[in-house]
């Protein structure tokens, strides 16, 4: 059967991992190439890198990081951050990205999704959707979530579920759903919105925002809780709290289907 994916995510600024990465044995905790190699060796199902640089020079550096990571890992690579137009996507795909995660640009121009899906295939286009829970209004029967852009700093007026359905209809291959309320809190994923969107759209949903423990990963992926197809996490892996292998062992014990971590092997085959 298809397994649920565990996706470590690295935030990259000016070519370096933000917050550092604290694995045993890494000589340079801020080097994204070393970090990705470590995740690949631990059996990460996919690797995600997000560019949080604001400058043009930083963007060029990021493309170079993508190129170097892609040349040394044999796992699917998803990249995002600052993608505005088709030319940005082309640059990243040529550097070796398998998928691009696009956030603000598809909100301001939803037609970009169909344009990119036609050119690169839906499997390469991930709609990154940042959501925030709205204050409850009298008469609401269920919570209301709004799509936000620019790192949560700007409202869009878009209702989250409707927007995800639309992104899927336009040809996005997956949704990377981040709860801005939970991001960085270590309180766990927002299970209600994750489950609701995962059940409503026909494409895979990646849960993101808030993981502080292995139990949070389990909740995000369990059918009656988050119901997500993949779980993305940053800090629990960055800070060496857990390895990918430990996360998978925990999930396996708790009934979530995961790919067994492969033993780290030398480069020699046969």
């Amino acid at each position: 059967m298809l397994k649920r994916r565990i996706i470590p995510c690295l935030d990259i600024k000016n070519g370096r991992v933000v917050k550092g990465v604290h694995f045993a044995g890494l000589t340079d905790s801020g080097d994204p190439i070393e970090a990705c190699r470590a995740y690949d060796g631990q059996g990460a199902d996919e690797i995600c890198m997000l560019d949080i640089t604001a400058t043009v020079e930083g963007r060029d550096t990021f493309v170079e990081v993508v190129r170097r990571v892609a040349s040394q890992t044999f796992a699917p690579l998803t990249v995002g951050g600052g993608i505005r137009r088709e030319a940005d996507v082309r640059r990243l795909m040529l550097a070796g990205a398998d998928k691009v995660a696009i956030n603000s640009a598809i909100v301001t121009n939803p037609g970009l999704i169909s344009q990119l899906a036609a050119k690169y295939g839906s499997q390469a286009i991930v709609a990154a959707v940042d959501v925030r829970r709205m204050p409850p209004r009298s008469g609401d029967t269920e919570p209301l979530y709004e799509v936000v852009i620019h790192g949560g700093s700007r409202s869009t007026g878009l209702e989250a579920i409707r927007w995800c359905e639309m992104a899927a209809e336009l040809g996005a291959g997956e949704i990377l759903l981040t709860s801005m309320d939970r991001d960085g809190t270590r309180d766990g994923y927002d299970l209600w919105i994750t489950r609701t969107i995962s059940r409503r759209v026909g494409i895979p949903v990646i849960a993101s925002g808030g993981v502080g423990s292995l139990e949070h990963l389990r909740e995000g992926l369990a059918d009656e809780e988050g119901s997500a197809d993949a779980a993305l996490a940053a800090s629990i892996f960055h800070f060496g709290l857990f390895t990918i292998g430990q996360a998978k062992a925990y999930l396996h014990e708790h009934g979530i289907p995961v790919r067994p971590p492969e033993p780290s092997r030398g480069i020699t085959l046969g």
């Binding site: 298809l2 994916r5 026909g202 197809d229």
Partner: peptide, 12 residues
């Protein structure tokens, strides 16, 4: 729950 399309990820 209904399975997603595309079939994306690691399968045995």
């Amino acid at each position: 729950r209904p399975l997603k399309i595309p079939h994306v990820g690691w399968n045995d």
